[in-house]
Design a protein around this nucleic acid. Sequence first.
DNA 1: TTGTACGCGTTATCAT
DNA 2: ATGATAACGCGTACAA
Lengths: 344, 344
Amino acid sequence: MEEITIKDIAKICGVGVSTVSRAINNHADINPETKKRIMDIIREYNYVPNNSARNLKRQDAKAIAVLVKGIDNSFFSAMIKVLEEEIKEQEYTMVLRHVNFDEDEVDVALKLVKEKRLRGIIFLGGYLVHSEEKLSQLHVPFILSTTGMVPKGYSRTIYSSVAVDDTKESYKLVDYLCKSGHRDIAIICAHKNDASVGKLRLEGYKKALKDNGIPVREELILPMKTEIEDYSLENGYAVTKEFLEKKIPCTAIFAISDILAIGAARALSEEGLKIPEDVSLAGFDGVEIGKYMSPSLTTLKQPVGSMARETARILFDIIGKDARHQHCVFDGELVVRESTKEVC
Amino acid sequence: MEEITIKDIAKICGVGVSTVSRAINNHADINPETKKRIMDIIREYNYVPNNSARNLKRQDAKAIAVLVKGIDNSFFSAMIKVLEEEIKEQEYTMVLRHVNFDEDEVDVALKLVKEKRLRGIIFLGGYLVHSEEKLSQLHVPFILSTTGMVPKGYSRTIYSSVAVDDTKESYKLVDYLCKSGHRDIAIICAHKNDASVGKLRLEGYKKALKDNGIPVREELILPMKTEIEDYSLENGYAVTKEFLEKKIPCTAIFAISDILAIGAARALSEEGLKIPEDVSLAGFDGVEIGKYMSPSLTTLKQPVGSMARETARILFDIIGKDARHQHCVFDGELVVRESTKEVC
DNA sequence: TTGTACGCGTTATCAT
DNA sequence: ATGATAACGCGTACAA
């Protein structure tokens, strides 16, 4: 059960530990022959350096934390999957941590940094509103990914961000609905106190209506229920169920996430409403499953893969090459499928 | 940027480091008053012990690795979510690692153990066929979760397992289809060389047919395509598409995972086939989204939450209390929804 | 009850 | 090119 150490390897090879260390870490000043001999022994004995010792010595761990707020959404799953690959490729460890709704993600980050001496943090989702004071305590580079676009005036130099322009993309989608002749468009959105993408997408909705000469009506704004998990199937379902009971005329529903939309779809068909004949339905995110529903879901697709890869790239540039912070805005894509149609 | 250490705390408090250490680690032999004073200072200075140093000293890290084979399935997402919570609750760190199809999960585990000195491993999914020799090199407790039931004769004392009896549950579902009058039941299953749950579920299917006096017909056995990701929407879709082109009469399709079933559903409706009027469709797993599809999906539900919690419990019992290895088999539940009906 | 000093496995600095 | 040795921050045996 005794694990083999660098000393053992050194002894076996008849060299000093520093030579072994040099071999492991690809140092220049080492005789290629000795290096080969050492590496052979290492392989033979299946020696793997102890990470804790390395990290202790190195002062920081080759690790990146990914903090996810708003659990379980397939949109995030897809991002995490790509992030894990990217991080692994750089030979870093990914520390994944879901942040509960009652936890402050910055506090969690602060603790994690001290505990694990990580080199970088990726915030997935969550809210933009963090006191700068707290944020600046975070002495490692961090990046806000899909957290909504960074507002002007916010100090953009202490961190990076990657996102779509949620307002614009949301506008695109709602504008498409308007141009298709819809005038009574309901939106399933975030709570009133949301300050994140939920708010931005709602703004896009309002703006699109206005630009199309359609008044914004409060009774068509359907915030998620606070007692149910945010952005969940169940929430979309419950909100729609309740809305339909009110019999408010409406020809289209826009849910600010595909998962909400799928929940809404169920509620609609339970009420005997056909999509898109009776009601058009659209989501946001572009998760894969939307393509497989019947009818398939019209949505605003975020380029998940590219966004995740860019997130990793920016962070590693900052860590490795001391690059400056960047703010990268991706374009979404309006994907019109079967769940929406023109009204005559 | 200098991080504060235990020495600093000791100096500030005017005590020795060991006293601080005792305070942190809840040792008995310390004056409650000094302890309180120290803890106050620690909070004030926001001191968090360096994990690497602790792990180095402790010889092993308070960490559990979760190795997932068969990426991205919402079934696993749900399990991981619960596992993360359970692990966090024990104040352990979860090391999540997806294992590619071309990687050997035991090799990955072996390396991870040496690198991170973890205390336990949870294998999620993957295959049962591991050489015992390799497995026994793994000098930390490990548990196979939802990997299929451990066959008798396999040395059950070197590890634990948690699973449903895939054969039995699959039998349950297919038997229900048979009893509903179906005789031409296709199955979307794993490749022929699969040795995991895929194989077991296929066995359950065959057995159910036999017991109902229905011959097993090769042309109704539809293995997933190897060139597409396993257990994916796309795979279910592609397999069904191809099957339908052959125009082989069949009144029901059983997909060995819900995700496959959802892909199949799309293929069916594209061909103008109504579910369940023309074809009944059933899945396996009981992922949440199945409930929200239209028609909602008949499935064999695995008790994800309980299984994940039990997985964690068993592992921590072994780690903490030196308990013996256990093999726990859960019952699944046949959930009949709208996607299946009796044939007249 | 408390403090001193050593060692965990590694890397980096300094000699050689 | 290589080897001895001092850190890194913490826990603990042992001494007080």
